[in-house]
Every structure is written in C-alpha cells, then in structure tokens.
Computed example of a mutant assay.
Amino acid sequence: MDFKLADQSYLCRVKSPISQIYALVRKDLLLEWRQRHALFGILLYVFSTVFVINLMVREPEERMWNAMFWVVQLFVCVNAVAKSFVQENRGRLLYFYSLVHPRYFIAAKLIYNVLLMMLFSVVTLVCCILFLGNPLAKPLYFLGVVLLGGVSLSVLFTMLAAIAAQASQNAALMAIMGFPLIMPVLILLNNISQSAFSPVVQPGLGGMFLMLAGLDVLVVALALILFPFLWKE
C-alpha cells in the first residue's frame, strides 16, 4: 500500500480545501518516512559535499563561502524537490485526479516541498558552519535569508518538476527550463545574503527582498493556474 487506508478514506470523505491539502501533505510525509533512505541519502550528500569543500579549501573567504553555500543549496533542492513527482506514478495521479482538485494537489506539493527544503536549508547551514567556519557577522539575518531562499528554490523547482513529470519525466526539459529561471533567484539570494557578512547595511536591500518575494508570488500563481491544464493531459 502506498499510504494508509485510513488516509485514503479520509481523503475521500473530506470536502474542505484545507482538509484535502492537509491530507495530501500528510500523505507525502508518510511516503517520505517510508522511503527514508532517499531522505538520508540527501543528508549524506550535504554532509559529504561540505566535507569535501573543507578538504579542498579549508575555511574560504566570505564571498566564496557564500557562493559555495548557495551552490550546495541548489543541488540539494534539485535532489529533494524533483523526486516529489517522480514517486507519483500515472495510476496514483489518476486516482488523486478523481478525488481532489488539481490546485489543491499542487498546493500540497508546494507546501510539502517548502517544509522539506527549509529543513535541508538549516542542515546545510549547520554543516557549512561546522566544516567551513563561521564568517557571519549577522547569523540570525543569514538564517532568515536561508529560509527565504529555501522557499524560493522549492516553489520554483516544484513548478518545473510538475511540468517535467507531464513530459514523461524528461530530466533534460527540467534542466533547460530551470537554468534561465533559477539564475535571477540565485543572483538575488547571493546579493541579499552578502549583507550578513558585514555589519554595514547594504543599500537597496529592501528592493531586492521585494523583488524576490514578487518572483515567489509569481511562480506560485503560475503553478496554481497552469497545473490544472497540465494534469488534464
């Protein structure tokens, strides 16, 4: 069984959108825990990548530390979020299509991937501080940026994974679409997080935060609008 019969019957009974989204998020959590080898594999990837960086450059200077952190975050997000649609086979998607509205389904995926990526973001930050030193002048500010960056990366790759899943899991399609979309997000995150390494307030910081938040809202809106049409295919 993919998930508990109780969860299936509960999903059939509930009519409230919030209750259906909650049931779908809970289903993903149960699947993740039952397949926790994939979860531990990503944690091992984070640990080993940061450890190898430590062996090669020891404690890098501030700009390189920041750049390496976001590179690790990018690949963690690709591995963590892309599999959310890979584990949903055609039969299971057809079953969910008969029970819930597509917008509730993609909303649950967005929420689940945001929570998962925020967890991995904190783990990556802890590993970087332990192995690469702590050059942060404003650690709480950087933690906030890391969590915001985890949200931005997860919503973008959730939308890309949903599109790629409808193209027979075409990983090349996800890479081609993702590169031009992810670059502005990474540039913004790099510029915003750079202020955490200096006590001086960076000019134009508020505008960059608003731009990043606007991109997140736009991606979520596009996912909610486009996914019902994709799922019909």
Results as ranks from 00 to 15, higher is better:
C128I: 07
L136F: 00
Q87D: 10
M118T: 13
I163G: 07
Y104P: 08
L130H: 07
F120T: 10
K138R: 12
P139C: 04
V151A: 02
Y141V: 14
H101Y: 11
G91V: 10
Q166Y: 09
Y95D: 07
I163A: 12
I129V: 12
I129A: 00
L93H: 02
V123F: 07
F85L: 00
E88P: 05
C127H: 06
S152T: 14
L143V: 15
L130S: 01
L110T: 13
C128Y: 00
G133S: 08
G149S: 09
N113W: 05
R103Q: 15
S152I: 06
V146K: 00
A82I: 10
V86C: 07
F142Y: 01
V78I: 06
A137H: 06
F131K: 03
V155P: 00
I106W: 04
S152G: 15
V146H: 04
Q166H: 15
L136A: 06
C127N: 02
V81G: 00
L130V: 15
L125K: 00
G149N: 04
A137N: 00
A167M: 12
Q87A: 15
G133C: 04
Q169L: 15
L125N: 02
L148A: 09
L132I: 07
M159D: 09
G149Y: 02
F142L: 13
V126Y: 06
L94E: 10
A165E: 10
V122H: 03
H101V: 14
F105S: 09
S84W: 02
Y112I: 14
V78P: 03
A167P: 11
V81T: 04
F105A: 14
V155E: 02
A80I: 03
L148C: 10
F105P: 04
C77W: 01
Q87H: 07
L148P: 01
L110N: 10
V122P: 02
A165P: 12
L153W: 01
L143I: 13
L125T: 07
S121E: 05
L147T: 05
T158W: 08
S154H: 10
P139R: 01
L119P: 05
L94A: 14
L130P: 06
V81S: 02
L148Y: 08
C77G: 02
V78M: 12
V78R: 05
M118H: 09
L130N: 11
F96W: 09
L160T: 01
A108D: 07
I111W: 05
N134S: 15
L140V: 15
